[in-house]
Every structure is written in C-alpha cells, then in structure tokens.
Simulated scan of single mutants.
Amino acid sequence: MTEGVIDERTTDASHGRGDRRGLLVCLLAGLLAALLAGHRAIPNVHGFGSLVDSATPLLGLGVPPLALAAALRRSRRALAAVLLPAVVWAALYGGAWLPPAAGAGPAAIRVASQNLRSGNPDPAATVAPLAGSGADLIALQEVDEEDRVDAALRGRYPHQATVSTVALWSRWPIRDSAGVDTGLGWTRALRAVVAAPGGDLVVYVVHLGSARAGHTATRDETLTALAATVRDDHAPRLVVLGDLNTAATDRVFVPLTRLLHDAQADAGQGFGFTWPAQLPVTRPDHVLYRGLTPTAAGVLRTPDSDHRAVTAGFRW
C-alpha cells in the first residue's frame, strides 16, 4: 500500500515537471510568434528595430529546436504551441520559396550588381562571372582599381559611366550620366540613361551609407534621400542597382518599396542573401525596378569579394 502511494506521488511529480517544461516551450513559442508578427513595433532606438527587422527571416530557425524540445518532453500542448510561430513565419516568408509568379519568357535586359570590396586583390576575377552571366548592364560598387576592371570588361561592355567608387558598364550606349547626391557628404551614386534596344532605360548605381549595430543614422538618411530622388524622377522605365546596406524587411526600406518593385521578391526564389559571401545571412544588395516585367532574379557567387552579386532579367 505504501509503495503504491509512493509511486503515485512520483508519477504526479513527474507529470508536474513535464507540464512545467511544456509550459516553458509554450512560452518561448508564443514569444517567437509575437516577435515575428510584431517586430516593427519594436522602437527603432539606435537602429535596434532595424536590426531586428533585418534578422526576422532567420527567426524561423528557432522553430525546429522548439519542436524538438516539445517532442522530447512528449508534450502535445507544447507541440501545438510551436505551430503558431511556424505558421506566422510561413505566412510572412514562405512565399519566397514558391515558384515565382513573375512573367516568364526570354529576358530583353539582363542586369548584375556587385560590391567589389575595397582592396579587392583581383577585381578582374570578381567581375568575370558577371560578364559570363550574360548581363547587359553591370553595376559595381567600391571600385578602387577602375583600370583593371575596365580591362576585363571593355571588350564586351564598351560603354561606361563612373562617379567616385560606383560605376556602370553597358553593352549599349550611355546617353547621359551624372552623380547623385544622397547626403553622404561625397558622391557615391550615379544616374545614367542607357539607350537600350527597347528604348531608354534610366539606371541608378548606388552605394548607400554604412549601417552597423547602433549606428544606422547615416544609412537611414541616405536611403531617404535616394527615395526622394527616385520619387522626383519621372522616367517610365527605371532600375536601381547597388549595395543599399538595407534588408528588404527593414522598416526604413519602406519608402523605396512604395516607389519600386523588388526583382528578387517578384522573380526570384528564396531570400537571395548576399552578405557575408561565405555564409550570407542578409541581403543588402538589391535590384529594384519600375516600368518593366521581371523574368528572373538570383544571386551569383564571385571570388575575392565579401558580397555575392545580384542578377535579374527583364522584358519590356
């Protein structure tokens, strides 16, 4: 009789611990779901909100450990709770992995953009895959050895526009080009009019201000300035190529997304992360557009840079 009482108490205690453990998983799952759904409600103090926004797609990595913890504790309640952040993440970002809904068919215009990395030991090797991709326009940032890059591209891309450390190489004539002030204190963006076979295409090559944890004010100001410039530009067909130092999920990116479409979101598959090149966890490099129909978008691994390149195809 005594043994039966002891066993019952032991079982009750074990169930109590199991419930508490299951409750912890439920709590963590609820917090993860709330963070995914409400990350933009976090105050953007010293850029913290932007940092969380940019990292939000990676928060889905928290779901498998929580599911495993719930399974190990044999808690149905915890397993059910883990479904909540999984569903929220899928609703927010699952569509990025579906086949793109953008227009199919051959591209009339192919573009590529690459941050070369200042001090790149072999920029010619970095740009070679871009030319090999069949791009008609190649936008580069952090160009500090222009002669070496030009020697690698000039044969296929006879037309060039350069301002400071940003440059555009084109298969087609460039009718006009000028620097663009983004409020950085020195010009690190350009606007060019390319005489493409289907008509004029306005191309911006941009490298916005840097952003680091706790220091995003300069980046934010340059993005606002770029959005204002694009808003005032009435060209019917326009693309923005470059390192914007901003993830598409960042709240400060909204002024641009109100004006332009994102080629990766419309015609790519996956998040298209580009930085750091060895194991990318975010996408500061972008192809934005209006007045065109995207046919494809992707990411290209290149040597000797800390960024991967971004590519896109369009038809008129």
Rank of each mutant, 00 (worst) to 15 (best):
L35E: 13
L36W: 02
C26D: 03
A29C: 09
A13N: 07
A34R: 00
L31W: 01
A37C: 10
T11C: 05
G22T: 00
R9S: 10
G18K: 03
S14K: 10
A33Q: 03
H39Y: 14
L31T: 12
H15T: 10
C26F: 02
L35T: 15
L31R: 00
G18N: 09
G30V: 03
L28F: 07
T10S: 09
H15I: 09
G16K: 05
V25N: 01
A34Y: 00
R20G: 13
G22W: 02
A13F: 04
A37N: 07
L36P: 05
T11R: 13
G30D: 05
L24P: 03
A29F: 00
H39R: 14
D12V: 10
R9N: 08
A29L: 04
A29M: 03
D19E: 11
G16Q: 08
L23G: 15
A37K: 00
G16V: 01
V25P: 00
A34M: 04
A33F: 03
D12H: 11
L31E: 08
L31N: 05
H39P: 14
G30Y: 02
L32I: 13
L23A: 15
G18L: 08
S14Y: 05
A34L: 10
S14F: 05
S14C: 06
H15V: 11
H39E: 14
G22D: 05
T11F: 07
R17M: 10
L31P: 06
D19H: 09
T10A: 11
L31G: 15
C26H: 04
G38T: 14
D12C: 11
T11D: 07
S14E: 06
G16S: 11
L31A: 15
L32V: 13
R20Q: 12
R17N: 08
R20C: 10
R17K: 08
L31I: 13
G18P: 02
D19Y: 05
D19T: 01
C26Q: 08
L32M: 08
R17C: 09
G22P: 01
R20K: 10
A34S: 12
A13E: 04
A29W: 00
G22R: 01
L27F: 09
L35C: 14
L27E: 12
G16M: 06
C26S: 11
R17S: 09
H15N: 11
G18Y: 01
L24Q: 03
L32E: 07
L31C: 14
G30C: 06
L32S: 05
R17V: 12
L35P: 12
A29K: 00
A37T: 15
T11H: 09
T11M: 08
R20W: 03
T11Y: 06
